[in-house]
Design a protein around this nucleic acid. Sequence first.
DNA 1: AGCCTATTCAATTAATGAATAGAATAATTG
DNA 2: CAATTATTCTATTCATTAATTGAATAGGCT
Lengths: 222, 222
Amino acid sequence: MESLPSARKFKDELYQQYARIGKCLSSDKRLEILSLLSQGPKSVENLAQQSEMSVANVSRHLQILLDARLVKFNKQGTYVIYTLGDPEVSNFLLSLWRLCESQLADISRMKEDFLQHFDDVQTLSLDEVMDKLEAGTIILLDVRPTGDFVAGHMPGAISIPIDEIDEYIQSLPRDIDVAAYCRGPFCIYSTEVVKKLQNEGFTVYRLEEGYWNGMWSLKCPL
Amino acid sequence: MESLPSARKFKDELYQQYARIGKCLSSDKRLEILSLLSQGPKSVENLAQQSEMSVANVSRHLQILLDARLVKFNKQGTYVIYTLGDPEVSNFLLSLWRLCESQLADISRMKEDFLQHFDDVQTLSLDEVMDKLEAGTIILLDVRPTGDFVAGHMPGAISIPIDEIDEYIQSLPRDIDVAAYCRGPFCIYSTEVVKKLQNEGFTVYRLEEGYWNGMWSLKCPL
DNA sequence: AGCCTATTCAATTAATGAATAGAATAATTG
DNA sequence: CAATTATTCTATTCATTAATTGAATAGGCT
């Protein structure tokens, strides 16, 4: 069909556009950034700390994500705060994680192996914690980074980012149980805190569920 | 926390696994293959023809998709028939296309530009065609490749793959209207057929909607 | 001015992609 | 049953692209 505009050219260009999004998802580091951002807005520096990358490198990855409009930013003083571009992106990430878990058996295996190291940590379910919280027989610690806490948290929880736990240990009451939560079963912030408080003699539990993506679940990819 | 297994190592390995899926999506050619497969199972050769790639190249892409379990295959005689790996993959692709369309303004623009070339092709809606089909005042042609037709089609439609249209032109009745459909607004198979039949003197329409991914819609990515 | 954060640049290293040609498998034919 | 053909997969090549780092720059804030 020589009179028609080239269908092949059109197709190629179209799929090249689609692949702009795809390329963003092809790097483990960018996936980690997206995962972190799905837990709340973050500055470049903050992302660099949590992903253990250099600021320069994070910045470059963010440019790539920005080009595909998977993230957006606004400036707050000298900080550039990045956010997921759109609720659509958040939905998409959910279905990506779901797909990964369902297709890649390696992932489930890795996660199981990892969790075996923490068999000795006592856990409470969300319901149990809520009951105890109402009854006033427990203190609930949110040990995620401050930004995540601000973006959304359990009513009644106290924000004690894991970096700052040492400073707070003295002021925690010892005559009442303590529970800690973070993002999910595979986020070990709360596990670390539980072990540390156990050594200090507290009665302390880990909350099974995590707060992630604006909801309580066991499904946080990390 | 030196006694704990390295959280960083675990995270890195986990995101590397996730990125296995991501890498599949980073190539325009692989996205095209996935798109083609979402329209029905296909042999390597068939995929090569439709994507206008060499068989060897398609095969290599399929290996990559297979490694991430986005596709699976079964052998039929000497042919290896590839399929999407799982209904989950199909769902995921839908949300990927949706994300792409919503984030990348370029795509909408390209599609609009492309469609302008076909302003002169008369279209009918799905409802109109169904009415006319019941009334017996129209013949409906499915001009997609045979495999797609077999995988699912409009009841009452006749399969005339675009490659074979010339052989069928003689036997089409000229005293009744003809409509053709393919995958969607951006699949130009039906447009090509309409133009060809128009030149032959038929009264012929293009069905606005396309049959794609087991449903009628205007949303086929290509 | 001085400090802090983020981006850009330059340069190195690593990896990835497309394509070719050749290998393996299975059916078909003489 | 050997030889041929058809079909799909693998391995290697080469060019391209991507990731990372450190240094330099830009620009806001106090």
